[in-house]
Design a protein around this nucleic acid. Structure first.
Lengths: 226, 226
DNA sequence: CAGAAACCGTGAGGAAATTCACAATGTCGT
DNA sequence: ACGACATTGTGAATTTCCTCACGGTTTCTG
């Protein structure tokens, strides 16, 4: 389980694996920023900029330049002292590191309001992501297409997800179905999930979940209204 | 500026305010979790649970129970040793702390795909948030309503935002308009913004921006596909 | 070609956040 | 009323993340 539960005794099987001695561990925050760098570099490429310094990169993202350099240094030496980074070269390297140098195949589960918006969200295509299939359990939607994406019966999820070689599942179902659908996805071999449902998901350690929770964002902003 | 830019010399005016000596500083992450607690408590209330322990609260969110206790302890003593927390009481306290014990008024700027979805997103209403007005600069949309929300000309933003006593602005415009619209909002007195645009916003320190960036989430998930 | 300038990579230090661990405090059954 | 038990609140330890500061390398300028 990914539950961080030191309150109860450690689960026997996972307890004795102190840490995969696979080199040095890379902070999650670094990975998120790699994505940011990638997009800034994309913009710079469009502007025909050949090179960029860690300082400028940092300024464009509101970060510290040392952090930019350190982040990149986790993965190799991409810069040229006295000059900076070559925009295209760095961007390609980052895409390779992130694994976005090939098309990522997404499956959307839950074609309600939010799901529908995601099907036609231009931002995905621009970054090379592609919602390959969608699922719902509403008879009226099954079989139709929205934004060029076919909607299948959620009952066939496992089969189709395997068949279509889906990489990442997007969860946009009602809250009381979230855990069950999540388990279906995992059962179908998915180990990366983007969850729009305002509910915590219990998943094995091997599965990565990113949460996007709109109400939380509003609610926590509300705190800062003086 | 909120820019964390120690590369260039500190800006004169803001430089000499070391830290508002307003008691102890509360980590941003704590505020986000308060929101999570609030929602779990809402669910527990619906289940007619009278009390709950930090341990259960933690388990329901995949957190450590000490963290739950410490988070709450920032704001007072809400628990009863040996017993736990009273669900309704704690929830009310958290809502008061977050400022969500009154209706929060939102303005949406940019009624495209994503914006439209937000207008009819059920999750907002459920948590007591209300999109009061929307803005766009497309002639065909101005004057119409979507999901019971009237769409105004973005040119009238400042006037209407003040008139409607908007608390928080939601940004869902094309990337190249984001900074300008953001400045309009700030000019209209807004100091909390939820930004769905994949672009960094430069704002004064007094303004809080939360970023929701869907492509980043996908891209960084992609890294973890082994 | 030499000196100045720009900039990267990184060890050391610091800050922030999380977790541990336990004393203090309350409940509950008998 | 008392002892066993559950659970909070919190200082201390730990972990994670960020920033500083500087040596070293390359480019640029005259």
């Amino acid at each position: 389980m990914s539950e961080n539960n030191p309150d109860s005794p450690p689960t026997p099987h996972a307890a004795t694996s102190p840490s995969p001695p696979t080199e040095k561990k890379i902070p999650k925050a670094v990975i998120k920023r790699l994505s940011l760098y990638s997009r800034v570099l994309q913009n710079l490429e469009i502007m025909d900029r050949e090179k960029v310094s860690s300082r400028e990169l940092a300024a464009r993202l509101g970060l510290n330049s040392a952090q930019v350099r350190k982040d990149l240094a986790y993965f190799g030496q991409f810069g040229v002292p006295g000059l900076g980074y070559y925009v295209s070269d760095l961007r390609q390297n980052i895409k390779r590191i992130l694994g976005t140098d090939r098309a990522i195949r997404l499956a959307l589960v839950g074609v309600g309001n939010l799901g529908t918006a995601l099907l036609s969200y231009a931002g995905f295509a621009r970054q090379g992501f592609h919602i390959a299939v969608a699922f719902d359990c509403d008879r009226r939607k099954i079989g139709s297409t929205k934004g060029n994406v076919r909607i299948y019966d959620a009952a066939d999820l496992a089969r189709i997800v395997r068949q279509e070689e889906i990489d990442i599942g997007i969860l946009a179902v009602p809250a009381d179905h979230a855990q069950a659908v999540c388990e279906s996805l995992i059962g179908a071999g998915i180990n990366a999930i983007l969850n729009f449902v305002p509910a915590h998901l219990s998943v094995p350690d091997s599965v990565h979940v990113h949460y996007v929770d709109l109400s939380i964002e509003i609610e926590s902003l509300s705190y800062y209204l003086r």
